[in-house]
Amino acid sequence: CIISGPPQFKDKGELNEWIARPSQASVDFKCSVCGSPEPNITWYVGDRQINSAVSGGKYKVKRKISLVVEGLTKKDATEYTCVAQNEHGFINHTFELKVIDRVLTKPVIHGPVNQTVTYMDDVKFECKVVMSDLQPHIQWLKHYQVNGSFENENEDPYVHIIQV
C-alpha cells in the first residue's frame, strides 16, 4: 500500500459480491484496507450504521476490518457495507448476503468397484465423496455368511465393521 494517501483495499479477492450460507451459520465479511493516516472503518447493515463500540449479539466487529453476523436467518439476507475513510478520501464495498435454507440430500460417492484378485494378493477399495452438504462419515463393512446366508432371520445383514 501507499505511504500517504486515501484508503485502498489490500486484497480485492476478499470482496465477494455475495455470500450464501445455510441458516443458523455465521458469516465473516472482511474489509482489509490500508492508507495513511490509517483509515477509519464503519460498517452498515442496509442503511443503518453498526456501532462497533456496542458491537455484540448478532453483529460483532473484530479489529474494525471484520464484521461477523451470527445465527443467520432469512431476515439477515440484505446488504452489508464497509466504508473506509481518512482525510484523503474514502472507499466502500457492499456485500450482498443471501441466506439459503439447508436442503439435506444424500451424499454422492464414487466407488467402491468390484475387483478380482488372486489368492493372497492385496486389494484396495476406494470410496470418494464427490458431494455432501454435511461432513460425511465413511464406514467400511465386511459382509459374511452364516449357514450360506448373508442375512439373519430378521433380514439384517451379517457384517463386521472394519476399523481403518
Rank of each mutant, 00 (worst) to 15 (best):
D122C: 09
D122S: 15
D122F: 11
D122T: 14
D122G: 13
D122I: 05
V123Y: 14
V123C: 12
V123L: 12
V123S: 14
V123G: 08
K124C: 15
K124N: 15
K124A: 15
K124E: 15
K124I: 15
F125I: 03
E126R: 06
E126F: 05
E126T: 06
E126D: 12
E126V: 02
C127N: 06
C127Q: 06
C127K: 04
C127E: 07
C127H: 08
C127L: 14
K128G: 00
K128L: 01
K128I: 01
K128C: 00
K128T: 02
K128V: 01
K128H: 01
K128Q: 02
V129G: 00
V130G: 00
V130D: 06
V130L: 14
M131G: 02
M131T: 12
M131F: 04
M131E: 11
S132T: 03
S132M: 04
S132W: 01
S132H: 02
S132F: 01
D133H: 08
D133N: 15
L134E: 15
L134C: 14
L134N: 13
L134H: 13
Q135C: 03
Q135W: 01
Q135F: 05
H137A: 00
H137C: 00
H137W: 00
I138F: 02
I138M: 04
I138Q: 05
I138K: 05
Q139L: 12
Q139S: 15
Q139R: 14
W140I: 02
W140F: 08
W140Q: 02
W140G: 03
L141R: 06
L141S: 05
L141E: 10
L141W: 06
K142H: 07
K142C: 10
K142A: 11
K142G: 04
K142M: 09
H143G: 08
H143P: 04
H143A: 09
H143S: 10
H143M: 11
Y144P: 05
Y144W: 11
Y144S: 09
Y144G: 06
Y144T: 03
Q145T: 14
Q145E: 13
Q145C: 07
Q145I: 03
V146R: 13
V146G: 10
V146Y: 13
V146A: 12
V146C: 12
N147R: 08
N147S: 15
N147P: 02
N147L: 11
G148N: 05
G148S: 04
S149H: 06
S149N: 09
S149W: 01
F150W: 09
F150G: 05
F150T: 12
E151W: 02
E151I: 02
E151C: 04
E151P: 00
E151G: 01
N152A: 07
N152Y: 07
N152Q: 05
N152V: 10
N152C: 08
E153S: 10
E153L: 06
E153V: 02
E153R: 09
N154L: 13
N154I: 06
N154G: 06
N154Q: 14
N154M: 13
E155Y: 13
E155F: 12
E155T: 12
D156A: 11
D156P: 01
D156Q: 14
D156I: 07
D156K: 10
D156T: 11
D156C: 06
D156L: 11
P157Y: 09
P157E: 11
P157M: 08
P157A: 10
